[in-house]
Amino acid sequence: MLNILVTGANGQLGNEMRLRSATSRHNWLFTDVAELDITDPQAVNRCVAANRIDVIVNCAAYTNVDRAEEDEAAADRINHLAPSHLAAAARTAGATLIHVSTDYVFPGDAHRPYDEQQPTAPLGAYGRTKLAGERAVEQSGCSSLIFRTAWLYSPFGNNFVKTMLRLTAERDTLNVVFDQVGTPTYAGDLAEAICNIVETERYKGREGIYHFSNEGVCSWYDFAVEIARLAGHTGCDIRPCHSSEFPSKTQRPAYSVLDKTKVKEAFGLRIPHWRESLANCIAKLQ
């Protein structure tokens, strides 16, 4: 029987992991900052040793992309230093660390999906701190799997889907950018994949970086239109606009579609199309 530590358990992915592990035969320990401060290396070491942890799943992240530009040190503590502490504890305990990263490690100037081998070049503080976290995990010497994902949403917390459900119900017109392209990811699908990999112990001997998002490609505009359609919010006129119409201190990747060939082949996954998973999530929300 495995002892599995989940950090960032109150976030979107952590909450979905909690649901999917409810019937597990293994012991799952769910922590957020109130139970375990992952920026404190001594606290991390004590927790991992005391609970004889076999697998750590790090769902914690500083995800406020705009605020990261103003306070990169705070983002770095959670996105870079905390994973390095978790990796060090995993190495000492002989445990495996499963760490979640982001499409923001890429510059977004590609024209075909990014695979795991393509050069990273983050555009901002969030991407820089997440890439630093990846490198700290890789260089730690612990057994590790890194899952890069993108455009995460769920019934939990704040995300684009819940914002669009509210705005398309309230407004007659809405402008949404059409010049940023990627793939939405239902956090439930990523949680399902990670739980399955952990439960079956297929993480053993398969260390490395993997890409995981739902299948398909869309712009934020396309995503918003589908959200409104599924919710029956037909009274809102959603209009495509350019990113330049929403001035921001953060430069976001224009194209961040992830190639999922490696993860599908390594673990035999069937990943749903983003429209299928969006319908599933909105049904839960309604």
Rank of each mutant, 00 (worst) to 15 (best):
V181F: 01
Y210G: 10
E199V: 00
N214F: 04
A224H: 11
A228N: 05
T185Q: 11
L190G: 09
L190N: 09
S213T: 15
D237I: 00
N196L: 04
I227E: 10
E226L: 09
G208R: 08
A191N: 07
I238C: 05
A228H: 03
I194L: 13
C236L: 07
E215G: 08
F212V: 01
Y210Q: 11
T173A: 10
I194P: 15
R206G: 01
V217T: 15
K204Q: 12
R229W: 04
S219C: 07
H211F: 09
A191M: 05
R202Y: 00
N196F: 02
G188M: 02
T200S: 15
E201K: 12
T200D: 10
D172I: 00
G188L: 03
F223A: 01
C195D: 05
K204V: 06
T200R: 12
I209Q: 11
I197S: 06
D172N: 13
T185G: 07
Y210S: 09
L190M: 14
A231L: 02
F223R: 04
V225Y: 05
W220L: 11
Y210L: 08
G216K: 10
A228F: 02
N214Q: 02
G182W: 01
F223H: 13
L190D: 07
W220Y: 15
W220H: 14
W220P: 00
R206E: 12
T200C: 09
C195S: 09
T183S: 15
N175I: 00
E192D: 13
C218H: 06
R206V: 00
H211R: 04
G232N: 11
I209A: 10
F178L: 00
I209K: 11
P184D: 00
C236Y: 02
D222Q: 12
G208C: 12
K204C: 08
V181C: 07
R229K: 15
E192M: 03
I209G: 07
T183R: 04
D172A: 12
F223G: 03
G188C: 03
V217G: 02
C195P: 03
G182T: 03
C236W: 02
A187Y: 05
T173P: 13
V181R: 14
G232E: 09
T200K: 13
A191C: 04
